[in-house]
Nucleic acid binder design. Sequence first.
DNA 1: AAAGATTGTTGTTGACGACAACAATTGTTC
DNA 2: GAACAATTGTTGTCGTCAACAACAATCTTT
Lengths: 171, 171
Amino acid sequence: MSNRAARTAPKIPAASGKRTANGKARALEADGEIGLDGLLGHAGYAVRRFQIWIFQDFVCTLAAVDIKPTQYSVLTVIGANPGLSQMAVAQRLGIERARLVHLLDSLEDRKLVRRVRSRTDRRSHALHLTARGEASLRQFKLLAAEHERHVAEKIGSENREQLLRILSSFT
Amino acid sequence: MSNRAARTAPKIPAASGKRTANGKARALEADGEIGLDGLLGHAGYAVRRFQIWIFQDFVCTLAAVDIKPTQYSVLTVIGANPGLSQMAVAQRLGIERARLVHLLDSLEDRKLVRRVRSRTDRRSHALHLTARGEASLRQFKLLAAEHERHVAEKIGSENREQLLRILSSFT
DNA sequence: AAAGATTGTTGTTGACGACAACAATTGTTC
DNA sequence: GAACAATTGTTGTCGTCAACAACAATCTTT
């Protein structure tokens, strides 16, 4: 256990403490229970809250190597498919090519990725990991696996797998 | 079916067409199948993609009334708990009070919400729906229910309920 | 009464999705 | 083969959103 989820990032309010900082719970409304009414039946709301939690845990877990979820996804795809064009990566990950430009600029500055001009199509760049990039990615994957264990601890291992099945059509 | 998810918002590329606009599929890599490698096992990636889809459908479905998910959640909570302070609403929904200020400014401009100075604590504002706000919220809920049916169509009704169960601890 | 905490507010920063325009290059069509 | 259309990478803008810092007004605590 411990403070795994408190490093560089957000303010993770110690889960569900909800006291007014000095120990006195808010007594304004009813009993402290604020109803969500219709929101409880909305998948989008639950998913949004979960997404925020998962994002924060990922950032915290990979804070030491300064890799954010999007960067990780880009490195992973390039690592698994060397030579892809920026367009192909952007399409596959569902991010805009305009945004990928900046992501790659950053990763290239850190010597993790190389842009090589394609000879078959001189408009596009073939993307490759550098040696340093491949070594780093191996380490990132270890940390990402640790993050994934946090998720399993949070919602339950079987629930996590079920969730992956349910959402498999979105990958 | 039909083009329900194409109104004001994004560019929904007709699902998984993936052809280069003129009918010739990209042949650069392997066979068109770009592996995601490790990403497939990450709940965060699937959740992110799903969250984007669900957000877009919500925005499209409620485009006619110009209500975004966050606005809807604020209206719902205020409607179910009249008199809440901004701080209480922000805490309950997990949004920052700084951000809630602008959200309420917008909703108040549209005469959907009123800020009333609390007599017990003159720092805080008691939040209420206007009559117009309550009537509007009823309509918004109908549209939100329609959106929720879209979700059920997309991932399956039983999967949706299971997902709500799995993520119930985040609401 | 003085010190500290809370509430609403304003402003800044950075990540992100959407969009528009551009140069270079490729593909298509007549 | 020349004119036109489409694609790729790039730059820039706009709006949303989370995080954070600072402030005045107002409780709360000591």
